[in-house]
Amino acid sequence: MNYEFDWSLLLEEPNWSWVIEGIANTIQLSLVAWGCALVLGVLIGAIRMSKSRTLRFIGTTYVEIFRNIPLLVQLFLWFFVFPLLLPDDLMRAWNRLDGVPFLTALIGLSLFTAARIAEQIRSGISSIPKGQFLAAYSTGLTEVQTFRHVIIPYAFRVMIPAIASEFLTIFKNSALTLTIGVAEVTGAAKTIEAYTFRGIEAYSAASLTYMLTTASVVIFMGWLEHALRIPGLIGKR
């Protein structure tokens, strides 16, 4: 291969600004979407464990719909179809908002990931032995107290690896949002490539950004898992 690498062009304007904007957008989008997905996912996971048949049905329907449509299609639905379904006034108001692509991406990613997190929560709670519930109830704790003090703190420690891996997934999935015009890392790389024809440098930089970020998340979560480990039970070293 006869190619002269020119990494310095990444540091030239406007490329550098695009890189920084891309990283900022990716991190912001992933973090906020992950936070929303976590709250919604816990709620839906809890609904799926509820005693009410109706609530369980709603939870299951949600999970099956959002888990079984490809994320890319969901993003297109939110971006192109959803505004058309709004009443005229609302649609105009929506279209006049700043950063519609970012907001759409946020909605799409959050709802998609919430379905996956709901499943993690459900399997995490199901993995807690039934005897733990019986023991807590037998001491007079109410159902809410039992979840608050016994089941959730226990299940949370079991679920840390799964929840961390959902963050890595949302972080990488955020690259898809370039298709609806979000200037995140991959979008920035595409723009730089278009202006400079330096695809190798641009996409290498993007890949490196993803790898460095995911690696630091993995290290942080490993530390968290160790710090919260239950002595004698899991995470023995």
Partner: peptide, 12 residues
């Protein structure tokens, strides 16, 4: 008070 076969102490 109740005592169980498998103790059921809260491990965390």
């Amino acid at each position: 008070g109740m005592v169980f076969q498998h103790f059921e102490l809260y491990p965390h």
